[in-house]
Design a protein around this nucleic acid. Sequence first.
DNA 1: AAGTGGTCTAGACCACACT
DNA 2: GTGTGGTCTAGACCACTTA
Lengths: 262, 262
Amino acid sequence: MPSLSSGLLGDLDPTSDRAVFRQIADQLREAIDRGRFKEGEKLPSEAELVEHYGVSRMTVRNSFSVLQGEGLVHAEHGKGVFVRPRPPVRRLASDRFARRHREQGKSAFIVEADAAGSHPQVDSLEVKEEKASQDVSTRLGSVRRVLARRRRYLLDGRPVEFATSYLPLDIARGTSIAEPNPGPGGIYARLEELGHRLDHFEEEIRARMPSPDEVRTLRLASGVPVIHLIRTAFDQEGRAVEVCDTVMAADAYVLSYQLPAT
Amino acid sequence: MPSLSSGLLGDLDPTSDRAVFRQIADQLREAIDRGRFKEGEKLPSEAELVEHYGVSRMTVRNSFSVLQGEGLVHAEHGKGVFVRPRPPVRRLASDRFARRHREQGKSAFIVEADAAGSHPQVDSLEVKEEKASQDVSTRLGSVRRVLARRRRYLLDGRPVEFATSYLPLDIARGTSIAEPNPGPGGIYARLEELGHRLDHFEEEIRARMPSPDEVRTLRLASGVPVIHLIRTAFDQEGRAVEVCDTVMAADAYVLSYQLPAT
DNA sequence: AAGTGGTCTAGACCACACT
DNA sequence: GTGTGGTCTAGACCACTTA
C-alpha cells in the first residue's frame, strides 16, 4: 500500500503526449490549488513520489522544478518541499509621498510598517559620492557625479526592498542629505527645507526575474520576480532633484495609483 | 582542439564549493552580460559544453535551466539555446485614460501602437454576462452579476496582454458596451455618453510568475513574469463603474505614473 | 542524415535536518 | 542514524530543425 493516500494524487496517463514530469507537476499543482496541500505544508517527499508514480527520481525532481519556477513551492534542504506561503504584502498608495506624511518624526517606511503591526528595519546604509550612471545622469539632467544613498528595508526580518537614491552634488553636498540619517521626514523633507519645493514625482515600473545579486540581497525564493521602480522627483521649477532606484520582492508588494480621468 | 574558442568561456574551479552547474551558468551569464553573446545569438550547444567542461550532459542542461529561470536565454527544440532578445516595450503613461485621448475613432491601444510603428491586433473577443467573482463584486460594490468583456492584445503578432473588463449589468446591459465592438473611444467613452462622467481610476499592480494558462495565452517564454493590473473606474458620484483585470507580459511593458507631491 | 534540445532511467555520493 | 533534498554520471530513446 502506498504511503500516499491515493485520493490526493492520481495516476499517470501513459497514452498522453504530455511528458510524465509535467503530468506529475499538473497533479501537484491541482492538489495545491484545491487546497489539499495548504500554505506552508509539506508535499510528499521525492522518494514517496518515485514510489507512487513508479518513475525515476530525476523525473520527480523535474516536476518540482516546474512548480518552483512558478513560485508555487520551495524546497528546504534536509526538510522537504513546501507550499510557498504568501507573505504579508506592503501596499504602497500613490499618496505615500504627500507632504502631510512628511511632517512626522519617522520615515514613511517605519510609520507604515508599525501601523500594519510588522517589525520594520532599515540597514545596509551607504552614503557616498560617485559617478552617475548613464541612465541616472540623463534623468537628472546631465550631471556627472551624484550623491548615492543605498539602503535595504526589512519587514519582520525579511528583506523586501533595496533602494538607491541619487542626488546632484550641488543640491546634496554638505547638507544633512549627505548624512547617514537625514532626519525626520527623510530626504524629501530636507529637500524642501533647502528650497527645492517638490512639485511631483514620476515612477517607472518594470517587472523581471532577479539577478543572482538581487536574489542574495533580498533572499528571494526561486519563482519570485522583482518589481523595479525608478522614481524621479521634480521641484516646482521642473528640475529633477532626485532619482530613486528601487528593487522590490514582488511577492511582498502591491502598488496602487490614482489616475485622473480628465 | 575544442570548437569553443577558449577565450569565451573559462575553466571550472574544482576546489570551489560552488556547484559545477552554477559555475557553468555563471560563466555563460557573464559572457552574455559582457556582450560576448549578443541578443538572439546562439550559445554553444549542450554537446559542445559537455566537451568543453568535461561534464555530463545533465549538468550542462542544469546550467541552461538556471539561465532560463532568470529569463536570460531560451531554448528552441532542434535549433539551440539563444540569448533572449528584449522585445520592444510598450510604455503606458498615467495620462493614457485622459479624456482627450478618447475623442478619436480608434482604441487607445491601436492608436498608440500605430504611432510606435508596431502592428497591433486585438482578438479573443468575448462578451457575456456572468456571475461576479468575490473580488470583482467587492470592488464594484456588491453586484451579483456582471458584463464581462475579454480581449487579448497583440503587437507584431506577439500576444502581450490579456484583459477582462467587468461592468455592473444595470449600467452595461442593452448598451453598446455589450456589443463586441463598443465603438470609438472604447467603453470609457460609452460610459460617459451614458451619463457616468468619469472622475478617476485606481490601479493596483502586482508582479508574479504566470500560471500555465497565462503561459499559453501570452505565449510566454520561461523566466518572464507577468504584471497583474487591476483598474477600477469611478464616476463623479464616487461609484465604481468598471473593473478591468489585466495580465501583461512583463517583458513587454513599462508602466509610468505621475504622483502629486502635495 | 546529422545536429539539436526534450525526456527518462538507475544508479552514486554529498550536505543538511531531525531525533 | 535515518530521511530529506542537492549534485552528478553515463548512458538511452525521442522529436524537431536543417540540409
